[in-house]
């Protein structure tokens, strides 16, 4: 028995190293005073972060990405909310099939989605590529995640809650606003944060569909051609990892709080 547990422990540690070592390299080289990414380390510097502050094109890319991520999170969550509510409360023919279909982009390879969207937007609809085309594509990618999260929120919701509000004199909309919405609000916040995070660092689809102004991941990819800017990318990467961790932590916090508020047990959430 003991030997068995020991073996598992070694496996777990190796797994974690494999998973996180590359990420730990990011801050190490972001603060390393050398252009070449290699050991031994050359000394501490915040120079690469200073460089981030002064690169105009990067600022544009970040602004673009934030705008896209925000619009995506709002749109995907709104769509997810409608789908999850319909899935939880309404009854219509072919419900299971339709819900399954909506969830499909979750497992489609991004590259396929990107190429087919490009064909549709350029060849079929003849649209100019812009931030809006990226937003549309990101909404497509993020909506299944939003639905998954919000489905959880609605599953925990007693369907008679909204009926009780109706029964007490509210109409359909005010019943939804006064009862359902506050009860699934933690799910909504959690969904927005996750959609925001996904959109912010999504590369493949953005690379294909971006207009004249690149998003941040696309800009980073462009930088890779210049070995001298590698440490800058490390610095940027460090900030992004920190930001992602913070956002996901907040999302998880709201999900758990929602469960607690509804007086339910944690049934294994998204994280």
């Amino acid at each position: 028995m003991r030997g068995n547990g020991g073996g598992l422990r070694v496996y777990a540690v190796a797994y974690l190293i494999f998973l996180y070592a590359p990420i730990i390299l990011l801050p190490i080289f972001a603060f390393n005073d050398a252009t070449i990414i290699a050991f031994p380390l050359a000394g501490f510097t915040t120079h690469w972060f200073d460089e981030l502050w002064t690169t105009k094109a990067l600022h544009e890319a970040v602004k673009n990405s934030l705008m896209i991520a925000f619009a995506t999170s709002v749109l995907a969550t709104t769509l997810g909310l409608c789908a999850a509510r319909a899935g939880a409360m309404a009854d219509f023919p072919g419900k299971k099939g339709i819900i399954g279909f909506v969830m499909l982009p979750l497992v489609l390879p991004d590259i396929i989605v990107a190429v087919s969207l490009l064909i549709v937007l350029r060849q079929v609809l003849d649209l100019t590529l812009s931030n809006w085309t990226v937003i549309a594509a990101h909404v497509l990618l993020c909506t299944p995640f939003s639905i998954a999260i919000l489905n959880g929120a609605f599953q925990n919701l007693d369907p008679s809650m909204e009926e009780a509000a109706l029964d007490l004199g509210e109409n359909r909309w005010s019943a939804f606003r006064l009862v359902t919405l506050p009860l699934v609000m933690p799910g909504i916040i959690s969904s927005m944060l996750i959609a925001f995070t996904i959109s912010l660092d999504e590369f493949i689809v953005a690379f294909f569909l971006t207009g004249s102004n690149p998003t941040m991941p696309v800009y980073i990819w462009g930088l890779l051609r210049f070995p001298a800017s590698l440490p800058i990318i490390m610095a940027l990467g460090t900030i992004l990892v920190a930001l992602s961790v913070v956002l996901l932590t907040i999302a998880e916090y709201f999900r758990r709080r929602g469960l607690k508020r509804a007086g339910l047990k944690d049934t294994g959430g998204f994280l």
């Binding site: 007693d158 009926e163 109706l166 109409n171 009860l183």
Partner: peptide, 19 residues
């Protein structure tokens, strides 16, 4: 619709608004 009927209901789950 239910909101316009002179009836009120006590649900099996009670449907007390937890928030």
């Amino acid at each position: 619709s239910p909101n316009l009927r002179p009836t009120n209901m006590v649900f099996q789950s009670y449907a007390i608004f937890p928030h």
